[in-house]
Design a protein around this nucleic acid. Sequence first.
DNA 1: AATGAATGCAACCGCAGCAGA
DNA 2: TTCTGCTGCGGTTGCATTCAT
Length: 226
Amino acid sequence: MVEEEMRKGPWTEQEDVQLVFYVKMFGDRRWDFLAKVSGLKRSGKSCRLRWVNYLNPSLKRGKMTPQEELLVLQLHSKYGNRWSKIAGKLPGRTDNEIKNYWRTHMRKQAQDEKKNTNKASISPSSSNCSSSSANSPVEDFSTERNELLQVAGENKIYEGDQNMMVYSMDEIWKEVESTEEIETKNDLPAMASNTRDYNYCPDSIWMSTHDHYYFDNHQDFSFFTG
DNA sequence: AATGAATGCAACCGCAGCAGA
DNA sequence: TTCTGCTGCGGTTGCATTCAT
């Protein structure tokens, strides 16, 4: 038997339409099966990724809000590189998105550190940020974090010094926990990427609101779905 | 206006864990 | 209990776009 050549690279609009149609029909599991019946020359894995990271109607689009950014920083300090775990706390965001966001941050940070190191070599007294623990990357975002905290905290006030933060971390964690509670109560998928944890609905994953959301943004699909 | 660098994002790869046979 | 196939995760890459010079 000669296996048909699998397509790779960017997805076309037509492929997207096809995948959405079949996911709607069969649900977002059994990706190998979906890949076969859909006629897409894609692996199940590729189909899943496309759905999870791009086509899933529950995904948010656009830039991260300051609140989300703050949450990512905090959650990363708690979970490390467990992106799916972090994504689970950020409804509508994927692990891939957060991972990319974090990488960008690390890159920025590295550059800033480079600059600071150069400065420090001139005035070494200014570089005492290493007091935080090595496995708490979030602690390194001192300047940026303070900016974020100011935004996220709205009316709350933070000290300029990273080690003297007035805002209680408990409040942040309460927020995190409250989102967990909401997820549990609503029994909704926490995140698109966190599929292992959410309840699969075999009839259709398409809530009416999702339909609306989806078709508002992808009007071209109407010809396919009728 | 051209072009090289930086950035953002989508997609692929390899591995581990899980479930069913 | 072991084997096998599928799914999901984290790391990495490569391309497109934006920015700076």
